[in-house]
Nucleic acid binder design. Sequence first.
DNA 1: AATGAAATTGCAATCGTTTGCAGAACATAG
DNA 2: CTATGTTCTGCAAACGATTGCAATTTCATT
Lengths: 341, 341
Amino acid sequence: MSIIKKGSVTIKDIAQELNISTSTVSRALADNPLVKPATKAAVKELAKKYHYQPNFTALSLRSNKTNTIGIIIPQIVHEFFALVIRGIEDYAYSQGYNVIICSSHESYEREVLDAKALLSGRVDGLLACISRDTNDLAHFIEFKERGIPIVFFDRTSDISETSKVEIDDYNAAYQAVKHLIDIGRKSIAYVGGSKNLNINKDRLAGYSKALSEAGLKTQKDWIVHCEAEDFESGKESTTDLIKKNEIDGLFASTDMLAVGAIKNMKAQGLQIPKDIAVVGFSNWSISSLYEPSISTVDQPGYEMGLKASEILIRHINNPDEKNESVILQTELIIRESSTLV
Amino acid sequence: MSIIKKGSVTIKDIAQELNISTSTVSRALADNPLVKPATKAAVKELAKKYHYQPNFTALSLRSNKTNTIGIIIPQIVHEFFALVIRGIEDYAYSQGYNVIICSSHESYEREVLDAKALLSGRVDGLLACISRDTNDLAHFIEFKERGIPIVFFDRTSDISETSKVEIDDYNAAYQAVKHLIDIGRKSIAYVGGSKNLNINKDRLAGYSKALSEAGLKTQKDWIVHCEAEDFESGKESTTDLIKKNEIDGLFASTDMLAVGAIKNMKAQGLQIPKDIAVVGFSNWSISSLYEPSISTVDQPGYEMGLKASEILIRHINNPDEKNESVILQTELIIRESSTLV
DNA sequence: AATGAAATTGCAATCGTTTGCAGAACATAG
DNA sequence: CTATGTTCTGCAAACGATTGCAATTTCATT
């Protein structure tokens, strides 16, 4: 029986028990050929017996590497973001990295707090998707100043000279609205999320482009912006729109907004897609489960995560790596809400 | 202009620039009254100028505290778990703790991997919810041996002598099925998730109890277990059940299973709730958005997270704290799928 | 048995921070 | 000008691990 340690077993404990130095133990565990086979065996046996696990903190301090990457993301209860996270994790794990996820809950203050927490040398790199409320990017710039690489994904910023991985929101929206036009709709409204985000500006631009290209006009009150992108907003923000009875098509920048809108329309006795055809965005599971099933734009979330972490880890391993900007394409999925019967 | 450091600014850099020792700098930053006000001011000014941030790793090593708690959770794309995480985060942040979330993706292997990664002194405590596949708990027991406290939540285990925070699944299921009986249903089926999980055993037991108490009988093939708890499983697993045309009520242990089942029933021309009344579990947003809206059991996820992290942090601060077992109550929400018209 | 080379091992510094203790600088009183 | 106290600062060890360099042991060879 040996002495029971309260905390974890360290290299020093093993060294003491075998009457050798910590250096030798360290080398033995690293399979260094300098160590005599017999010593090596003894060390390894004891390490196994005591479930020795190198102290992560000590290792990090010595090597100045944490083998951890940080993720700052606005929400995690979000099918798209969750997919991104999964992609990030899968690649990161395969490269021996761990992951710290911080959810900013769409709050600028929380995002700054999270950034500060990650700045103190806890992570070797950062993957960030800015919150709805974020305008000032100073907290991210500090990372660059300390030589901690950042890759932005999905929601990026014009200012930052960093690598980014984005969705081609402009084209995705363009295709979605073009599809509505192709099935004969002429008065198409837009319901979108926060104007603050580039992705929404791009989606709106794609919408406008499709209309103008087809020689169609929109009206000022056919374009609605909601801060929250939830079901309730979709419902409330479309009430006026529906009352006027002017539109025959709707492009929503989020599936949840689409569901809210459709529910509202159905309540007013409108038929979907006969009276109004609807296309959403993101391909959340509800879009296929809802009745009618909702046409939408599928975003490659998993690929986005994979790509973002791949670029980040490349930056970590090679500080001189030049910035890279990736734009991923989407796929329009046509379902009942925009199919003529 | 001062020398530009590649990495972060350390206490040593400040000391050098002011020609004082690191001890004094450290004390000045800690507002130690021993330090002369003038020195203190100079140090603080420089620290601010250089955005000095204490090195997290060094701090951890010195204090043997990481101020971080680990979470091992089966899924994050899950409205209930996401709520739990939010509760954990909110309390942890308020106490100055950070959080590392590891998602096991319902895989035992991944869970073990995550546990090993967290074991090496990265976290001061662990919150865990076991995966569907987990039977062996050795990887958790090691935490106890090293004096790292664990609190299990939601899905707990009989074996472990640890603190736990659970839902009263037995009673929740009992109330749900009793409700179906109260509205006159006599032939009630059960569709549930993995039999491996205690929560599902409890839900099944609650179901059985409600039936037997009312003098009702079930049949062997009225009880269906699915490994996956998704929409597809709900659809497939109920096909035989519906064909036989024997049941007039269904209790599903998950809303997604309920949605799948209802969709299947509707496809067979059955009316909900007239022909079959349905109650789900978890109060996912789809249960209120679906048509018909689905009766379900609301689980206090946020409170669970709050409570679990509160207990954990208490354990961290006081290793002699005795184990605590909390059982949270649920609320039955009655919607269209079980309302007589 | 002495010599030299080869095979092992240990010392000590390092990563960034804190802190007990000793000592320096300064001020006040006698 | 000494004695005594007060205020302030620095040295060095510690946290757990790695690693260049030096020291020791081992062994073969003459």
